[in-house]
């Protein structure tokens, strides 16, 4: 039975290198998540304000980011801005910029959706009870919004982790790149290693995202 990649993975530090590659991808997504969540909350709240100018600007930002594939955004930032502004941008920084811009846009839409789903009578009842504006937000609006928002934002995190696999295409060394290197290095000894190694990459991504998805679903059910 020819080796389908398992032996190659157990050889030397190959498995370890693969995991380090996964961490490199996860790091980019987590930094972007850390930027996107607060910014998205801020912009999403601004979107519910009545100022038509702010509304229009944010709407345009959201639509532009949303209509373009993330790959195109990566290319625009990685190749386009470096040319236009003449700065030197590493693949990692370009990825963080793109995923933060995208994540912020998606997050702001989730926040806006959660905020406007709170019926008007909730505000009015608060006022009728004599609560101040701060109290209405603190005790009525924010808790209800969070219940709707948290499962959705956890889902966004898994989407961002999955999207990070694209950074391979602008030359960032992450798990897929490491996998390619390992397969390439063992080409003569185990020509069929690609099967097992890509299967392992697939499973590693699955086990990185799956627990997060399960948590999101659990919270969604519990807080309905």
């Amino acid at each position: 039975m020819p080796d389908l990649g398992l032996e190659v993975l157990l050889k030397g530090q190959n498995m370890e290198r693969l995991l380090i590659g996964l961490l490199a991808a996860l790091k980019i997504s987590l930094v972007s998540v850390a930027v996107s969540l607060p910014l998205g909350i801020l912009l999403g709240t601004l979107m519910t304000w009545k100022n038509p100018f702010i509304k229009a600007v944010l709407r345009v930002y959201l639509e532009i980011i949303r209509i373009m594939p993330q790959m195109v955004l990566l290319f625009l930032v990685f190749f386009g801005t470096t040319r236009a502004f003449g700065w030197d941008l590493s693949g990692e920084s370009a990825s963080v910029i793109v995923f933060s811009l995208w994540g912020t846009a998606e997050m702001s839409d989730l926040v806006r959706g959660a905020l406007i789903s709170i019926p008007l009578h909730q505000y009015e009842s608060g006022e009728a009870l004599g609560l101040s504006k701060v109290q209405i937000y603190r005790y009525i609006v924010v808790p209800q919004t969070l219940r709707r928002l948290i499962p959705l934002s956890i889902n966004l995190i898994t989407r961002m982790i999955k999207t990070t696999s694209l950074v391979l295409m602008i030359g960032v060394v992450e798990i897929l790149k490491v996998a390619q290197q390992i397969i390439e290095a063992n080409r003569t000894a185990s020509p069929n290693a690609a099967f097992g190694i890509y299967l392992v990459v697939f499973l590693l991504y699955f086990f990185a995202c799956w627990p997060i998805s399960v948590a999101a679903r659990y919270l969604e059910k519990r807080w309905r």
């Binding site: 999955k162 999207t163 694209l166 897929l176 690609a194 990459v201 697939f202 991504y205 699955f206 799956w210």
Partner: peptide, 14 residues
């Protein structure tokens, strides 16, 4: 819970 890129790599190269 897996990215399309990884799915494609498995399908095409694996």
């Amino acid at each position: 819970n897996t990215p399309l890129l990884v799915q494609l790599f498995f399908l095409y190269y694996g």
